[in-house]
């Protein structure tokens, strides 16, 4: 079967697919980690500034 041939890679399937698998994992981590970090940074900054704003308006009242 053609699909089987594709996955067996002429007997080198374990080597080929494990290296592609490791590559996929490392690259995905490199996408996910910075996206999570960007969101966290924005959230933290917003929180910090809204706290600062509340303090400020407290003083005014």
């Amino acid at each position: 079967m053609a699909l089987n041939d594709f996955f067996s890679m002429g007997g080198y399937g374990a080597y080929v697919w494990s290296s592609y698998g490791i590559c996929a994992v490392v690259l995905l981590l490199n996408v996910i980690q910075p996206i999570i970090r960007e969101r966290r940074t924005i959230r933290e900054l917003q929180k910090r500034f809204s706290l600062a704003k509340e303090n400020k308006s407290d003083k005014h009242s």
Partner: peptide
């Protein structure tokens, strides 16, 4: 196509 010497294992080249 598979390589004349290394067969399908040369496909690791595409990420290496």
């Amino acid at each position: 196509p598979a390589d004349y010497q290394q067969g399908d294992s040369f496909r690791i080249m595409y990420i290496h």
